[in-house]
């Protein structure tokens, strides 16, 4: 299955990316604003280089085993979809890989950095879109993004140009100076997407990126991911429940159930192997969840 972004939207994005003045440099050049960050040590990640490698990665919270013996490899420039039911351990995995949580056992590296020992180095080269928006209600979108830029050691006119470009791209230009408290949940999600991409991470973790977005905004985020992955070799690690979104956006899918990785492959391979018509059906066959009609009405007795 060949994944291609919508041509008209992707042309628009490409143009916006070029106009945004050093928002995502192309080719072999490392971005100049990352001099202070350990990104310099990362070097150019060629496609097929492994950017995420986990070996027997496990995480427990007391008696609850959130992630069990996860062995995973994700390649540079890929769009890895991490699917699984609620509580499967997706968010915990993302938090370990982005340096926010420490694993209980096993090991993992992100862009060559050890998740246990080099957390700040990982944070400098990755972007994380959290599951729910933790925005500052009393800041405007511009002020919030400026704050995120400063936390990532970015400042000056180049940041403002990036902020303008990202907000324009996400359709928030006219609301850029309004306090975030007046934003709808979809608009907040867009601001978070912008904050995740602002410091041009080489590796982006997206936790339910479209859960609050309407279909057109979801399509926009999907195209943004496809264009960024294609043009800048940014790697995306996407946690989602949306099987349609994952099928359209991701080139590799991993399905996690009760903390363990049960399936790994391209969407089409998974569909073919399970004899399903689409990824949703394949997903339901793997994790369960199909209920017969009689049971659905049993509560009325």
């Amino acid at each position: 299955m060949t994944l291609k972004p919508n041509p008209s939207i992707s042309t628009h994005f490409r143009e916006m990316l070029r106009r945004s003045d050093c928002l995502y440099t192309f080719g072999n050049n490392l971005p100049i604003f990352c001099k202070e960050l350990p990104i310099g040590k990362v070097g150019k990640m060629a496609r097929n280089d492994v950017v995420i490698r986990t070996e027997q990665l496990s995480k427990s919270f007391g008696s609850i085993q959130a992630v069990r013996n996860l062995d995973l490899e994700v390649f540079a420039g890929s769009r890895f979809g991490f699917l699984g039911p609620n509580g499967a351990g997706k968010t915990t995995t993302v938090r370990i890989l982005s340096g926010l949580l420490k694993q209980t056992s096993g090991s993992a590296t992100v862009c060559g950095f050890d998740v246990r020992k080099q957390r700040n180095a990982i944070k400098a080269i990755t972007g994380l879109l959290p599951e729910s928006p933790g925005l500052y209600s009393k800041l405007s979108a511009v002020e919030f993004l400026e704050f995120i830029g400063a936390l990532n050691n970015l400042s000056g006119k180049s940041v403002h140009r990036r902020i303008d470009a990202l907000l324009g791209m996400l359709g928030l230009e006219s609301r850029r100076n309004d306090l975030l408290e007046s934003y709808s949940s979809g608009m907040k999600q867009k601001v978070l997407v912008a904050s995740t991409l602002l410091h041009e991470p080489k590796m982006v973790f997206l936790d339910e990126p479209t859960s609050r977005l309407d279909p057109s905004a979801s399509a926009l985020v999907k195209d943004l991911i496809l264009v960024l992955a294609e043009e800048t070799e940014t790697t995306f690690f996407i946690c989602t429940h949306m099987t349609n979104f994952a099928e359209d956006t991701c080139d590799i899918i991993g399905i996690l159930n009760e903390g363990a990785l049960t399936t790994l492959g391209s969407p089409q391979d998974i569909i073919d192997q399970l004899g399903a018509s689409d990824l949703e059906e394949a997903y339901l066959k793997i994790v369960g969840g199909q209920v017969d009609r009689e049971k659905l009405l049993s509560w009325r007795d």
């Binding site: 960050l37 938090r95 982005s98 926010l100 700040n120 180095a121 944070k123 400098a124 990755t126 972007g127 994380l128 959290p130 599951e131 729910s132 928006p133 933790g134 925005l135 500052y136 209600s137 995120i148 936390l151 990532n152 050691n153 904050s195």
Partner: peptide, 16 residues
């Protein structure tokens, strides 16, 4: 801090 999600954002940045 307003929320735990805000904390995650801060933790997502180096020395945030």
């Amino acid at each position: 801090l307003d929320s735990q999600d805000q904390l995650w954002i801060l933790k997502g940045a180096p020395h945030g």
